[in-house]
């Protein structure tokens, strides 16, 4: 159990003949996903493009993405784990209780049809969004989909990918992994990296009020965090680096305006499949880049005396 069976987006474009989006609305949230990677491009082994692919959408409501789907499975809110688990069971030919399936808003026949299509596919992919990972069940839901994907490889080629967004969140995750060994929720207060989501993740630190200062970079927690976390950010010295005025910058003690990365500052962004893309600025900016500001803060901090207490000296008794 566990793990992640995935690929880069070009593999989907070139090979996928079965595509499932689950708990997301790519038509509105990742508007180029269908046309660049998944549905409409003519791929090396899918030369007919859209006609060569079957698209299934699983969601709790009919979003604009449903128009692009061949099959739309509307499930009851909070039943993602159950549906994924039922698919796993049916794939393995295990007995499934019709009454329990009914609770998800689907029928065994519909799910069996999906499983049959998944098995018939030459190359299947499941893209799952925050409707899976951030609703009741959270990582258990993601785990069920990851495991379903791994197990499908006993029958045919199958991969999955989380539909990540929010700017360069994948890049932050990638760099944190190679520098600290962990993707997020890293605590360095002991001088070495420790990882414990729920303890060291930003939302938990803020809600508990554990931190006495905050440096916010490339994010707007003032718009997305729970109210107690936002209140805490307003209470402590918060420094924001952002090209624009944001909810967070309004409540911050300091807002340093920076150049927009990719437009007027260079850098690297990692795609949701962890492929790095170089960003080349098209315009000049009067503002420094995020990197420049952080480097200058770091140099200034390095000039300060060490924060650790001086070694204990023997007190003179004379």
């Amino acid at each position: 159990m566990g793990g992640k069976i995935t690929c880069t987006l070009g593999e989907v474009k070139n090979r996928a003949d079965f595509i499932m989006y689950w708990g997301g609305n790519p038509a509105e949230c990742h508007p180029r996903h269908f046309s660049k990677y998944s549905l409409t491009p003519k791929g090396k082994f899918v030369p007919e493009g859209r006609k060569g692919r079957t698209m299934v959408l699983v969601d709790i409501r009919e979003t604009p993405s449903a128009k692009a789907a061949d099959i739309f499975l509307q499930i009851r809110p909070g039943t993602d784990f159950e549906v994924a688990t039922a698919l796993r069971a049916l794939a393995k030919g295990q007995r499934v209780d019709a009454g329990r399936i009914a609770e998800t808003g689907l029928t065994i026949e519909r799910l069996q049809d999906i499983v049959d299509r998944m098995k018939r596919a030459r190359f299947g992919v499941i893209f799952f969004g925050m409707g899976v990972s951030m609703t009741r069940g959270k990582h258990m839901n993601s785990g069920a989909i990851l495991t379903l994907t791994a197990e499908m490889n006993a029958f045919t080629k199958f991969v999955c990918m989380p539909m990540r967004g929010h700017g360069n969140v994948t890049g932050a995750d990638v760099v944190l992994r190679w520098t600290t060994g962990y993707p997020f929720g890293v605590d360095l207060s002991r001088g070495y990296p420790r990882f414990n989501p729920g303890e060291f993740s930003t939302v938990d630190l803020l809600v508990r009020g554990d931190n006495d200062a905050a440096l916010v970079l490339g994010a707007d927690p003032g718009a997305t965090m729970p109210q107690p976390g936002i209140d805490h950010l307003a209470r402590i010295p918060t420094i924001v680096l952002d090209p624009k005025v944001t909810h967070t910058s309004r409540l911050a003690r300091v807002h340093i305006t920076t150049a927009v990365t990719g437009i007027s500052a260079r850098g690297t962004a990692y795609r949701m499949d962890e492929i790095p893309l170089p960003l080349r600025p098209a315009l000049d900016s009067p503002y420094p880049s995020d990197e420049e500001v952080i480097r200058r803060i770091r140099l200034a901090v390095a000039k300060k005396p060490a924060w650790t207490p001086a070694p204990l000296r023997a007190t003179s008794v004379a």
Binding site: M1, G3, T6, C7, T8, E11, A150, A154, E274
Partner: peptide
């Protein structure tokens, strides 16, 4: 994939378009 089936533990896989895995 074979080793995953033998161990039943975690399995990661990443196919890279047109090149490798």
């Amino acid at each position: 994939h074979l080793l995953y089936q033998l161990t039943g533990r975690k399995w990661g896989n990443l196919d890279v378009e047109n090149e490798t895995g």
